[in-house]
Each structure stands twice: as structure tokens, then as C-alpha cells.
């Protein structure tokens, strides 16, 4: 029956859309405009993450989410502290997916003088939770509106917001430069882009434990933890997306858990579980338990807790504006460096 239906799908696909024959997955890519297809226009792009799976995981995270998450709150606070360093006010802000609730909690202290806040997430459930929470504790005068959207296909008009915040969401995009360029376009001139993503050092303990357990039990390894950006990539990304005055800084948080299993629970509640396309969907109980045991034995502290590292990369960039300082054109100097040296002595 399944074979039949897939045959049917193939035939409709051929008649419905012009398609090159060399695509092996053509039969599965029928939903036009989906983020998950191997479509003609998308074929050149690399697909690392399953965005649809991530969406479902975030739906689950919306139900599992605790009302307060110290790690996310810390990251959100740290990210939004940057607003206080700016003299500018940001009347309209756009908050992209990731830890929305933490951002919302952190913003209610009135930072950045935000009047209108557009909250965007790929998960409808997540937004509904945020909306309900905001309805209950309506203690600030930020007008919040909600929209389900994908960072890779930003549904925001060009030059319409003053501030784009993305807190721990962008590391799940397949096309990170594209998402950042779209964010830049959504910004008004002299608008600010603030993002926090997880860096390559994140969960290094779990990476090691997973690899060892899989080598031992399964005789091979499969990717369990997603590839993440390195610090040097973050700077390149900002420049590539043509943000001006880019700055990048890194913070490392070590969270202590009772056991390795609690770490996994926390990752689930944050919606940060594996969403790789090439994911091996089979995880034997044996391997999972071995991973936890290796994690405990290799990394446990003296007090019995197990640490997990989270490396957060903070990125700041501005949309170009004539008022911003910039380097002068090459060769435009009128004074020789030799004269300067003479002036100030050696």
C-alpha cells in the first residue's frame, strides 16, 4: 500500500511540476514552498537540519518548559544588557525564535524603551504559551504581537523594525547567512541586530561520552550532536551579512546536573535536541545507558554532579547608516606616518 501511494505521488509530481530526473528524492518533495523539500530552487543549498522536526521538538518544549530556566534567563539577560549600552531607543522590536519567554521576561524591565514587540517562532504551541503567559501577567506596556514564521523565510517587511533579537535560535538554521541577511533587510537603517547562538564548545562532554559509548556498543559512530558555529565563524557571518560595526563575544556557562539523564531532560525542555537530517533514529537503550555511565565516570565532579558546558556566542551588528563611524578610504591620508613619528618622538 505504501509503495502504491508513493508511486501515485511520483506520478502526480511529474505532472504537476517540471522536475529534473536526477533527483532521487523527488517523490517526497511535493509540498511546494515547504522548508523540507529537495526542490529545484533549494537543491543547491545544504540541508543539515530538519526544520520540521525542530518545529515539532519546539512544540514539545512548549509543554515541558519550566516557568523559569536559569540558563536561558542568564543568556537573555546578558544579550539584552547590550541594549543599555546604546543611547538609541528601539520602539519596534522583532524577536526571532529561540528562548522567547526568557526574552519576554527580561524585556519587561523596560530595557531599550521597546513599545512594540513582534514575537516570531516556528512553533505555534510555543507562541500560544507565551501569549497566555503575557495575558496573565500584563504588567508592562509593551504591545506584543505574535506570528508563526521561519527564520529562513522571514515574513517581515523591509526596513520596518528597529531591533532584531534572536536568542539561541539561529544555530538551527540551515542557511545562517541567508537568515542574517534577511534580518538585516528587515531592520531600519541604523537598526540593531542582536543574536546569541550556541558555539562549538557546547556539550563537549556529551559529545565525547556519546562517541565512546557508540564505539563500544555499536562499533561505529553517528552524529548525535549537531555541528555548531565556531567563534571565528561568527565574525565572518556578521561581515558576510553586511552588518556594520560587528562585534562578537563569547561566554561559557557550566551547568551542573544531578545526572546525565537530567541533562537530556533539560535539552528536551529547551527544544535543543538533535534535529540532524542524517540522524540515526535508532538509539539502543544499552547505548544510552552506556553514554550516561561514561559521562558520569569521566566528568562527574566530587560532589556527584555532572557538568555540561554551554558556549554562547553573542553577535552584535548594525544596519548601515551614514551617521555611523567608518574607516576612511584607502590612500586618503594627508599626513605621512613618518611625520607623526617625528611629532611624537620615537
Amino acid at each position: 500500500m505504501r509503495a502504491l501511494s508513493s508511486l501515485f505521488r511520483t506520478s502526480t509530481s511529474c505532472s504537476a511540476r517540471r522536475r529534473t530526473t536526477k533527483q532521487p528524492f523527488a517523490a517526497f518533495s511535493l509540498a511546494p514552498f515547504s522548508t523540507h523539500n529537495y526542490d529545484d530552487t533549494q537543491n543547491s543549498k545544504v540541508k543539515i537540519f530538519d526544520r520540521q522536526l525542530k518545529r515539532t521538538q519546539r512544540d514539545r518544549a512548549a509543554w515541558l518548559m519550566p516557568s523559569k530556566d536559569p540558563l536561558l534567563d542568564n543568556v537573555a539577560d546578558n544579550l539584552l544588557d547590550r541594549l543599555q549600552d546604546c543611547k538609541k531607543n528601539f520602539p519596534t522590536a522583532l524577536c526571532l525564535g529561540g528562548s522567547l519567554q526568557a526574552i519576554r521576561r527580561s524585556l519587561s524591565s523596560g530595557r531599550g524603551a521597546i513599545e512594540k514587540l513582534i514575537m516570531m517562532d516556528a512553533s505555534y504551541e510555543m507562541l500560544q504559551v507565551c501569549k497566555n503567559a503575557a495575558d496573565v501577567s500584563n504588567n508592562d506596556n509593551i504591545e506584543s504581537v505574535y506570528v508563526v514564521g521561519d527564520e529562513e523565510f522571514l515574513p517581515i517587511k523591509e526596513s520596518s523594525v528597529d531591533l532584531v533579537i534572536s536568542c539561541l535560535g539561529l544555530h538551527w538554521t540551515n542557511d545562517l547567512p541567508g537568515a542574517m541577511i534577511q534580518s538585516r533587510l528587515a531592520l531600519k537603517p541604523d537598526g540593531l541586530f542582536l543574536a546569541a547562538i550556541l558555539g562549538g564548545e557546547t556539550l563537549k562532554e556529551l559529545r565525547i561520552a556519546c562517541t565512546m559509548a557508540q564505539m563500544e556498543r555499536d562499533g561505529g559512530i553517528s552524529p548525535r550532536i549537531s555541528p555548531l558555529a565556531q567563534v571565528r565563524d561568527a565574525g565572518n557571518l556578521l561581515t558576510r551579512a553586511a552588518f556594520t560595526l560587528p562585534s562578537v563575544d563569547v561566554d561559557e556557562y557550566v551547568v551542573k546536573y544531578e545526572s546525565a539523564l537530567e541533562l537530556i531532560e533539560h535539552l528536551r525542555a529547551m527544544g535543543e535536541t538533535n534535529a540532524l537530517f542524517q540522524m540515526n533514529t535508532v538509539l539502543k537503550r544499552d547505548t544510552a545507558v552506556a553514554t550516561a555511565a561514561i559521562y558520569d565516570s569521566m566528568f562527574a565532579a566530587e560532589d556527584g554532579t555532572v557538568p555540561a558546558t554551554f558556549q554562547v556566542i553573542y553577535m552584535t551588528g548594525w544596519r548601515e547608516h551614514p551617521s555611523q563611524q567608518k574607516a576612511k578610504r584607502r590612500g586618503s591620508a594627508t599626513i605621512s606616518f613618518k611625520d607623526i613619528q617625528k611629532q611624537f618622538g620615537s
Binding site: 515547504s34 522548508t35 520540521q52 518545529r55 516556528a122 505555534y124 500560544q128 505574535y146 508563526v148 515574513p155
Partner: peptide, 21 residues
């Protein structure tokens, strides 16, 4: 492009996948 995006409970769903031709 001739696509409609639903509004659920006041929240517009603008993920391309949610769109209907």
C-alpha cells in the same frame, strides 16, 4: 504567488509549509 496562510487564534502562520496554494 497565490498562496494563503492561515490565522490560528489570532496568530498568523507564515511558515511556507503552512501555506496552501
Amino acid at each position: 504567488i497565490g498562496v494563503s496562510f492561515p490565522i490560528k487564534n489570532g496568530i498568523p502562520c507564515l511558515v511556507p509549509r503552512d501555506g496552501k496554494i
